[in-house]
Design a protein around this nucleic acid. Structure first.
Ligand SMILES: [Zn+2]
Ligand SMILES: [Zn+2]
Ligand SMILES: [Zn+2]
Ligand SMILES: [Zn+2]
Lengths: 137, 137
DNA sequence: ATAAACCTTAGAGCACACACTAAGGTCAAG
DNA sequence: CTTGACCTTAGTGTGTGCTCTAAGGTTTAT
């Protein structure tokens, strides 16, 4: 299967596939005589693995680690895989907490402002940002 | 006040201040005869405004918009400021929702794995990523 | 034979927010 | 008068995940 068909089957761009090859996430099994990439069913499975991992929030470099483990399963433990997953989950939780603080602060700010069409001379959002320390504490 | 003292008062680096100047967020009021930046109390207030806006989640380009409004309050309305704030809040909410899905999926994955020290040959995390479509749906 | 559609590479660009470097000028203390 | 801390500029590097470009080669259909 050439790159164009492979890409459209997966719903990604050919650029993305070349990018993944460059970054050692997926290399087409073989090349045609004219040098075109020739993808196999195995490649399809691997690409689906990658896309699923992306869908649950893993970054490409984390996926690279997962692939290494997948290729050499006997040399890695469940412990290791679970740790990667839990670490990722914790990082996500930290980011959620930060964004939740942002959301809260922005709501507080928005609630203070009348939102009218008059000039912003006394806009509470601006004056709050000018005057008050520790908005987030 | 020279850049070093100014920076340490605010808890940022001198690099950051030069970066902000380059990107039109804050330019020191004046320069000394030898070309050193000379920051004023007004600069201090503006920098605090910027840092507070960052603290509630605004990006630097959004802060630039806020500063434009702040400088020309009469030419902008409360409506405009509130809209910026609410749009940002909505974006944050979207991102939180995405991360929450990630968190959920990662929890499901982690719960399936025994986390033991045996080889990962049958690790449920890996097999789930290999075999199952629509993990997130 | 030629046009359209496909493929190749290397490399640049984007958004974000800095951090770091090199090569040099300035200033206060000893 | 020299040392060391500070300052200047312009430019490069970091991490993330692509996207796009330029300049060209290949394949298929008409
Ligand atoms: Zn108002
Ligand atoms: Zn207002
Ligand atoms: Zn296990
Ligand atoms: Zn496992």
């Amino acid at each position: 299967m050439k790159i164009g068909e492979f890409a459209s089957q997966l719903g990604v761009s050919t650029d993305t596939l070349r990018y993944y090859e460059k970054h050692a996430l997926l290399t087409a099994t073989s090349r045609t005589q004219s040098g075109y990439r020739d993808y196999s069913q195995t490649d399809l499975k691997q690409m689906k693995f990658i896309l699923r991992a992306k869908n649950v929030g893993f970054s490409l470099s984390e996926i690279k680690e997962l692939l290494q483990i997948k290729f050499h399963k006997q040399q890695h433990s469940c412990h290791e895989v679970k740790n990667l997953t839990l670490q990722k989950r914790d990082l996500v939780a930290v980011r959620i907490a930060e964004l939740t603080r942002f959301h809260q602060s922005l709501s507080v700010l928005a609630d203070k402002c009348c939102g009218g069409e008059e000039p912003a001379d006394n806009c509470s959002i601006l004056t709050t940002l000018e005057d008050i320390d520790g908005l987030t504490q």
